[in-house]
Design a binder for these strands. Sequence first.
DNA 1: CAGGAAACTCTACATATATAGATTTTACTT
DNA 2: AAGTAAAATCTATATATGTAGAGTTTCCTG
Lengths: 104, 104
Amino acid sequence: MKSIRLSQQTLQVLDRFAMEPASWLYGYELSRETELKSGTLYPILMRLAKHQLLETHWEHAGEGVPPRHTYRLTSKGIDLVKSERVAARKQLATRKPATAGGRA
Amino acid sequence: MKSIRLSQQTLQVLDRFAMEPASWLYGYELSRETELKSGTLYPILMRLAKHQLLETHWEHAGEGVPPRHTYRLTSKGIDLVKSERVAARKQLATRKPATAGGRA
DNA sequence: CAGGAAACTCTACATATATAGATTTTACTT
DNA sequence: AAGTAAAATCTATATATGTAGAGTTTCCTG
């Protein structure tokens, strides 16, 4: 399996998951928070799940309540988010040296 | 529990179920076939279920497929539909005598 | 770097279930 | 029959998930 492309939109989604690494989140909620359209978001979620960065689950809330398709970071997903953070910091350091921590 | 009101729309729905008394049907399908709007249809289904004329079930079709809320006639529902049919025939007979079965 | 293939995004639409609140219909009571 | 209370319908909107297909971006290879 080819490795996934970490577009800006995909990173946005991963970052939202990284805020609460243990929680199950569902599409509509994510679409409100990231302001990604469903036609962008759902394919991203499916790709992330296919690459096992997210695991999925249909949540049964109750009798009259339609089940929700929920997603959560796998440990592989958590690792990826962490290393992406490191990479982002490094790149930032290269391009804009010492905005924070420079001489007073 | 007060007995349910058998409006024209409710009878339409019951009749559709009576066409296939053993099958589970779901809302969207019924809304296309009866041309009832979802805002009319879903409350009818919920009322019929509340009165135990229909039983309900969330159908899990598969991994990528959202579950559907399906409904089916209970035996009580089947009885009611049958007796409604008899009642309708009687009323018809009273009002329009012998359109079918008259003398040749 | 140019060209093409694959991956991805975006717009639009389809599928699916449900609720809020205004209006209408029905049933009950006098 | 008129009043009224309850029940049902209807319009509009929200919630929720997904796909098709056009267009764009990215990656890879010569």
